[in-house]
Design a protein around this nucleic acid. Structure first.
Lengths: 240, 240
DNA sequence: CACAACATTGTACGTTGTAGACCGTACTGT
DNA sequence: ACAGTACGGTCTACAACGTACAATGTTGTG
């Protein structure tokens, strides 16, 4: 049985337990396994990260994976922390907090674009990893220079990141992509018959939003709109 | 094979296909199955809604479920629409848009509190259901009287609902509940050894936020804080 | 040299969603 | 009244999943 999750997360730390040198040398390090799992997830989503597929990708048996990782859930945490650690944030420089928050948002959107499967990982234990903690530490500094308190600083960052996550899930999973567009066209006929003249407002707004969504630049427009709301909302919470 | 999803969603509509009267009468209606599935989900989460468990709860075989529902994924859509339809929104009355948005947010939080499994349903086809459309139609009216355009009206509502969803997922899944508190106490010792004196800001803010989270009224405080940001952010987007 | 720690493997279990063939029932057209 | 047919329901079975368990082989340490 491998080391506990916290030790695996901090395996590159100098104070990490080395692990006895007895027995055969492992053909792969934990980092290799995690990197391979990320590669699988990047091209096939989290569903492609099965223990067996990962094992085959590493040319070993399914059970050998458990030499390096305690469980699949632990693996997802390790993958997430690795992605967070590899993230190279845009430097804040001397920018004001509004610009800094924009950079945090943009960086996180880029992260979720590169690794859409991060949207499917909802494990609180990710907060235990060095990559996630470093990311947290950096992003908190977006509010340096404002008069915001510690608790509100955490709340404000959470507010921003939640927005990014929600928006990203709508941006990343393209609505017209795949078979949903096809399904939509099959359904819209019978749907129109059911709705009839009811819900006029919903129909009007839904059609407007739907048509705009077909347009080329709408994803960016919606993103900009929401981000403006976020920053505007934080305006009076940062002491001006 | 049952009728397609759209017809099942609108099964109570007068223009819905009645379905030939041949063959034995079904022991349960589609509504019964959906209601039973919701009951299971309410007490055990989505994971408790297995086809077999649902079947046993209805005293039939697993495969009989597929007489009423095309697939488990379809069932989740039906459950969601049912929950949306059963939602009785707080009337807007003559309240200004700020109050209306608060009511929309509060109502949705209450909905997600009552049915936490809704947080785990991420199927775009829910938008096809009468309950969801009626909900959409009503909530769009929160911005009646403002000078907001159609596209922005949709974006603004999405903005509000996204916030509610993110907050709710943090409120509903209690952090100190279950075995996470136990795991935390096991991990915090070795974690402190790893972190050391690095990430001072993250440690300070994290501790402050963590301690506040232990407090009794923090969930509500964080909720109020975020909702204030949301409304403040929408302020200049509604034309005053 | 014997022992212990370790990586690796094969087999197997329980659980999931659901396809396919089949049976009996109740209505429909002749 | 009788055949045809649409339908609800059941049984069996499959592929895929995560992973527990026992066994085998390999390496360093006493």
């Amino acid at each position: 049985m491998p080391r506990p999750l916290v030790d695996l997360l901090w395996r590159d730390s100098p104070s990490a337990p080395t692990g006895g040198s007895r027995g055969p040398r492992a053909r792969y390090s934990t980092g290799d396994v995690v990197a391979r799992a990320i590669a699988l997830a990047d091209e096939g989503g989290l569903a492609a990260v099965t223990v067996r597929a990962l094992a085959q990708s590493l040319e070993m048996t399914a059970m050998s994976v458990y030499t390096h990782v305690n469980s699949r859930d632990d693996l997802l945490v390790l993958m997430t922390d690795h992605a967070h650690a590899r993230m190279t944030p845009t430097p804040f420089g001397r920018a004001a907090w509004r610009t800094r928050v924009r950079r945090v948002a943009d960086d996180n959107l880029a992260l979720l674009r590169a690794h859409p499967w991060l949207l499917d990982v909802a494990d609180p234990r990710t907060a235990l990893g060095p990559g996630t903690i470093a990311k947290y530490d950096h992003e908190l500094r977006a509010f340096d220079g404002t008069s915001i308190g510690d608790i509100h600083r955490d709340a404000a960052l959470t507010f921003v990141l939640d927005f990014v996550r929600s928006s990203a899930s709508r941006i990343v999973t393209r609505p017209a992509t795949g078979d949903f567009g096809q399904l939509w066209e099959e359904s819209v006929a019978s749907l129109a018959r059911y709705v009839g003249d009811d819900f006029a407002l919903a129909q009007r707004v839904g059609r407007a939003a739907g048509e705009a969504m077909g347009g080329p630049h709408d994803a960016e427009r919606a993103w900009e709109y929401g981000l403006d709301r976020v920053i505007s909302g934080l305006d009076d919470a940062t002491g001006g």
